[in-house]
């Protein structure tokens, strides 16, 4: 029986674990697919306070984890398969193993949104990709289509343009949503082209991406464009499938919250799931800390505690 189970091991979950364990709660982190979460896929982090020389995402997440372990947090490096919040103690399953807990902190974060078009799943890792930092250098002298028009799409396009012969940004709207700081740079980069009011309808290729079928939303015209890669940067979906039916959520799949509190007593949320505004490592750490403090207060207020 745990005092708190934390789902997710990004900056929010790991900070929650540190605070909960240091607050003498018997704490278990069920990490999900990757310790570090999104920062595990971030090469360089230059804006985490206290590290003026910068450090890599995996280094920072290793430090977060070691810090939580120092105070006694336990870890299971696996994905929770279901939760039951009908009555306390709450339950979390990892396969056929079940863990009881008095309180729960959900910090499961977000997953890249997919296009949901033909060819996407089949060619994932075979030319369809989500992380320019990881694979941009393998597109030297190749053509890449970047789907999206926000900050991440523009940043990824700029990273790719260092290697690729041609980067085409395909955006469904008439204007980019990214900040001026990025659009100004992208618009003068000769290797970056823009296709506005255009959507990808299919990703083509047998064993490798060879092209995309595009639709012009204004004219309805379909055309096939040759490309070696398709980078998806169309936003994120919340990882809250586990909580469906267990806590109140809005139509987009985000938990309804007041601060870090959910509709269910003793169940708290942290990280990107409650932050659609900033989504920085340091703000995620902040809400992870808040969730742990609320869990400690909630447990102290329980008669059985």
């Amino acid at each position: 029986m745990y005092d708190v189970i934390i789902l997710g091991a990004g900056p929010a979950g790991l900070t929650a674990a540190l605070y909960a364990a240091r607050g003498k709660l018997k704490s278990l982190v069920i990490t999900g697919p990757m310790v570090g979460g999104q920062i595990a896929l971030t090469y360089q982090i230059d804006n985490y306070p206290g590290f003026p020389e910068g450090l890599t995402g995996p280094e920072l997440s290793d430090r977060f984890k070691a810090h939580a372990e120092k105070f006694g947090a336990e870890f299971i490096e696996a994905e929770a398969t279901s939760v039951d919040l009908a009555s306390n103690p709450y339950k979390a399953w990892v396969g056929d193993r079940v863990f009881d807990t008095s309180s729960l902190i959900v910090a499961t974060g977000m997953t890249h949104r997919g296009l949901g078009v033909q060819g996407e799943d089949r060619l994932m890792g075979r030319g369809v990709f989500v992380c320019a930092t990881c694979d941009a250098l393998l597109y030297e002298d190749r053509k890449v289509v970047v789907v999206g028009g926000g900050d991440s799409a523009l940043q990824e396009a700029l990273d790719l343009a260092k290697f690729a012969s041609e980067v085409t940004i395909v955006h469904r709207r008439e204007e980019l949503r990214a900040c001026r700081c990025l659009t100004d740079r992208a618009l003068i980069e000769p290797r970056i082209k823009f296709l506005y009011s255009t959507v990808v309808e299919e990703i083509l290729g047998e064993k490798r991406v060879q092209g995309v079928r595009l639709r012009d939303l204004k004219t309805g015209e379909l055309k096939v464009v040759d490309t070696d890669g398709v980078l998806l940067a169309i936003g994120w979906n919340p990882n809250t499938g586990l909580l469906r039916g267990e806590i109140e959520m809005n139509d987009s799949g985000y938990p309804k919250t007041e601060g870090v509190k959910t509709s269910k007593p003793g169940v708290f949320v942290a990280g990107d799931l409650i932050d659609r505004n900033y989504r920085q490592v340091v703000t995620s750490c902040g809400s992870g800390c808040a969730a742990a403090i609320e869990a400690i207060r909630w447990l102290e207020a329980q008669p059985s505690h």
Binding site: G125, C134, D135, L137, L138
Partner: peptide
């Protein structure tokens, strides 16, 4: 090394 990987058809790591 990078060119070799590209020639061998590697597009992800």
């Amino acid at each position: 090394n990078r060119r070799l990987a590209i020639d061998k058809g590697v597009v992800g790591t």
